[in-house]
């Protein structure tokens, strides 16, 4: 089975473009499964179900959705195989610009939208900088000049990625994205594989449920701003 991680900021169009690519793949008889990770709730499950794919949601609750993802990704892979999928897409929550679910040797897609502004590519960490494929959405609502500047800025921070424009509403580019997804390498199992980048250390007292503010309550991995 082929495995693909799809990451990107909230509402950037991850589900919309994935659905368009899946629709094209389904026409060619490819069986696709999807796992969606999110923190509190997700509507994506029903959207994918409508498209006729096997889908599973993982809600991380009070854990970081990306850390939750890593702890569960092997089981996702097993689930996808059990469902008889040819290709499994894992859509992440994309809540923090510093985390990335991308795994070495697994096709890594980042979805980012034109509306987020031309300075956004700079602000997104490994999720964008280490992706193999960058999908740019919402080109329909900005000017040609902004589209060109935006893709140039994406290129600046990730000069090696394949950049593709897909319209999540009309599906333009969806067929082409499907072709790229089919190029993903086979992933028979994930034991011992490495994440492309370490996830931020999140081990302070606040991670553990502390709510009180003040230096007496800060423990563990605490980092202070420099005001000098």
């Amino acid at each position: 089975m082929k495995l693909i991680t799809v990451a990107g900021p909230p509402s950037s169009g991850k589900t919309a473009v994935t659905i368009k690519a899946i629709a094209a793949l389904q026409r060619d008889g490819v069986r696709v499964g999807v796992v969606k990770f999110d923190s509190l709730s997700t509507q994506d499950q029903s959207v994918y179900e409508k498209q006729g794919v096997a889908v599973m949601s993982g809600l991380s609750g009070n854990l970081c959705p990306d850390h939750f993802f890593v702890s569960n990704v092997s089981d996702c892979l097993a689930w996808g195989m059990e469902k008889g999928s040819d290709l499994l897409v894992i859509e992440s929550a994309g809540l923090c610009n510093r985390c990335a679910p991308h795994i070495q040797g697994v096709l890594a897609v980042c979805v980012i939208d034109n509306l987020s502004g031309v300075d956004t590519p700079k602000k997104i960490g490994p999720m964008l900088k280490m992706a193999d494929v960058v999908v740019i959405t919402k080109g329909d609502i900005v000017s040609q000049a902004e589209r060109e500047v935006f893709s140039y800025r994406v290129r600046q921070v990730n000069a090696n990625a394949t950049i593709i424009n897909v319209n999540g509403l009309t599906g333009q580019g969806g067929h082409e994205l499907g072709k790229l997804l089919l190029n993903a390498p086979e992933t028979p199992d994930l034991e011992g594989r490495l994440l492309r980048f370490s996830m931020p250390a999140a081990l302070c007292s606040y991670c553990l449920g502390q709510r009180k503010i003040g230096s007496d309550f800060q423990m563990g991995n605490v980092k202070k701003m420099d005001f000098t």
């Binding site: 080109g139 329909d140 609502i141 040609q144 902004e146 589209r147």
Partner: peptide
């Protein structure tokens, strides 16, 4: 592409 419903953001 120069489309009708384009905006500057």
């Amino acid at each position: 592409q120069l489309s009708q419903n384009m905006n500057f953001v």
